[in-house]
Amino acid sequence: MTGGSGGIGRVSAARLAAANTAVVVHHASGRDRADDVVDSIRAEGGRAVAAGGDVADETEMSALFDVAEREFGGVDVLVHTAGIMPLAPITEMDLDTFDRIQRTNLRGTFVVDQLAARRLRPGGAIINLSTSITRLQTPGYGAYAASKGAVEAMTLILARELRGRDLTVNAVAPGPTTTALFFEGKSPELITAIASANPMERLGTPDDVAEMIAFLAGPARWVNGQVLHVNGGAA
Results as ranks from 00 to 15, higher is better:
75 V>W: 00
75 V>R: 00
76 D>T: 00
78 L>Y: 05
79 V>K: 03
80 H>Q: 11
80 H>I: 05
82 A>N: 02
84 I>W: 08
85 M>E: 14
86 P>G: 04
87 L>M: 15
87 L>T: 13
88 A>Q: 13
89 P>V: 07
89 P>G: 08
89 P>S: 12
90 I>H: 14
90 I>A: 15
91 T>G: 11
93 M>A: 09
95 L>S: 12
97 T>Q: 15
98 F>R: 06
99 D>A: 15
100 R>M: 09
100 R>E: 11
102 Q>S: 09
103 R>E: 06
104 T>N: 10
105 N>C: 07
105 N>G: 07
106 L>T: 13
108 G>S: 08
108 G>E: 05
109 T>R: 04
109 T>H: 10
110 F>R: 09
111 V>G: 01
111 V>E: 01
111 V>P: 01
112 V>A: 02
113 D>A: 10
113 D>W: 04
114 Q>A: 14
114 Q>R: 15
115 L>Y: 01
116 A>P: 01
116 A>H: 03
116 A>S: 05
117 A>L: 02
118 R>Y: 06
119 R>L: 09
119 R>F: 08
119 R>M: 06
120 L>T: 00
122 P>M: 08
123 G>V: 02
123 G>N: 04
124 G>A: 03
124 G>P: 01
125 A>I: 05
125 A>G: 05
125 A>Y: 02
125 A>D: 04
126 I>G: 00
128 N>Y: 09
129 L>F: 11
129 L>C: 04
130 S>K: 07
131 T>K: 05
131 T>V: 03
131 T>C: 07
132 S>V: 08
132 S>T: 13
132 S>D: 15
133 I>V: 15
134 T>S: 13
135 R>V: 08
136 L>M: 15
137 Q>E: 14
138 T>N: 13
138 T>L: 15
139 P>V: 09
139 P>H: 11
139 P>G: 10
140 G>I: 06
141 Y>P: 07
141 Y>W: 13
141 Y>A: 13
142 G>P: 04
143 A>M: 03
144 Y>L: 11
144 Y>T: 09
145 A>S: 12
146 A>V: 12
146 A>I: 06
148 K>H: 07
148 K>A: 08
149 G>V: 09
153 A>R: 13
153 A>Y: 04
153 A>D: 08
155 T>V: 11
156 L>K: 14
156 L>T: 10
157 I>Q: 12
159 A>Q: 10
159 A>N: 09
159 A>S: 14
160 R>Q: 13
160 R>Y: 02
161 E>S: 13
161 E>N: 12
161 E>Y: 09
161 E>P: 12
161 E>K: 08
162 L>K: 08
162 L>Y: 09
162 L>F: 08
162 L>I: 05
163 R>Y: 10
165 R>V: 02
165 R>T: 05
165 R>L: 04
166 D>G: 05
167 L>D: 02
168 T>V: 06
168 T>K: 03
169 V>Q: 02
169 V>G: 00
170 N>E: 06
171 A>K: 04
172 V>A: 06
